[in-house]
């Protein structure tokens, strides 16, 4: 019987060599260029990423009208903030934000694959793609959040959103206590990708 869970000893070296072989062949055959992969990664470092989402959340924290628009017409709010063009680009053409409140905690999942709002959150971290997370968050979100170190008050309702069609979701976390008087830029620094997916809350103000 084959051991289906045995990995070759040189697993990562072989993966690395194989992807390099593929990239080399695709450049030689004229499918992509020698700049393609680096340029794609550059776009995610500068134009599409969690830095955009953090700006949306920070603005929502200081502007109730903007916050209301962000949850009722997410794309209109994104357009209003003057983010880079890609802020409504690939994997974010149709986004919907849900706001945490003292009564409700929101959690975004994708049980079928790994749908994630690229323009405002960048690329999904490994935890989001983990089959255990995807399976368990649907049935026992509190237990899963506890494993992330987040205890949700039992009196709070959890809403789990499964991204099964083409809407891409993100969470507007609650503004942390003790952040009165902070600038919008400093507020944005408190917002992590995890907070915008609902497995964490926004960080309290750094001491």
């Amino acid at each position: 019987m084959t051991d289906r869970f045995a990995y070759p000893q040189d697993r990562e070296a072989r993966n690395a060599a194989r992807v390099r072989a593929l990239e080399a062949l695709l450049i030689e055959k004229g499918v992509i260029t020698d700049q393609t992969v680096d340029k794609v990664m550059q776009t995610f470092a500068t134009e599409m990423g969690p830095f955009n989402g953090a700006k949306l959340v920070a603005r929502a924290w200081i502007d109730d009208v903007f916050k209301a628009l962000l949850v009722t017409d997410t794309m209109a709010a994104v357009a209003q903030l003057g983010l880079p063009t890609g802020a409504a680009g690939a994997e974010g053409e149709h986004m919907r934000a849900v706001a945490n409140t003292p009564q409700v905690h929101n959690l975004i999942i994708c049980t079928l694959c790994s749908c994630y709002p690229w323009p405002v959150l960048g690329l999904p971290p490994y935890w989001y793609k983990d089959p255990s997370f995807r399976a368990r968050a649907a049935r026992e979100p509190r237990a899963v959040l506890k494993e992330f170190g987040l205890e949700v008050d039992p009196a709070k309702e959890i809403r789990t959103w499964d991204s099964s069609a083409q809407i891409r979701w993100f969470v507007v976390p609650e503004r942390p206590d003790g952040t009165q008087g902070m600038s919008e830029d400093d507020l944005a620094k408190l917002v992590t990708p995890e907070a915008m997916m609902g497995v964490a809350v926004a960080l309290p103000q750094a001491a």
């Binding site: 979100p141 509190r142 237990a143 709070k156 309702e157 809403r159 789990t160 083409q166």
Partner: peptide
């Protein structure tokens, strides 16, 4: 399933 939550899908 845990109590106190709802699940939504598109």
């Amino acid at each position: 399933a845990e109590p106190g939550f709802s699940i939504y899908a598109d």
